[in-house]
């Protein structure tokens, strides 16, 4: 799977880092998301982190190979 995060949307509450710490962390100074692995092995925890992100700042692309530099697609707030 391929994962994208939108730092400008991120609300810095750290749901993702709690649910899937192998893929998400938070910056020390302001808590904004750090994506540790943009192409993690298939994981329900990563899907859960995207579903429960209170800012809808995480997008999961299923069955997609990583393609660096792809722009983040604007989307509605509700997953």
């Amino acid at each position: 799977m391929r994962v994208e995060v939108d730092h400008t949307r991120c609300a810095a509450v750290g749901r993702c880092a709690g649910i899937a710490p192998e893929v998400f962390d938070q910056r020390e100074d302001d808590g904004v998301v750090i994506l540790l692995d943009a192409a993690p092995p298939d994981s329900d925890r990563v899907r859960e982190a995207a579903l429960l992100c209170p800012a809808a700042a995480i997008v999961v692309h299923e069955n997609a190979a990583p393609t660096p530099g792809t722009p983040i697609t604007p989307r509605g707030s509700h997953v």
Partner: peptide, 13 residues
């Protein structure tokens, strides 16, 4: 809020 969020991360908790 930005001054405070770093103190309330998952890791800190």
């Amino acid at each position: 809020r930005r001054m405070l969020t770093g103190f309330f991360t998952t890791k800190r908790a």
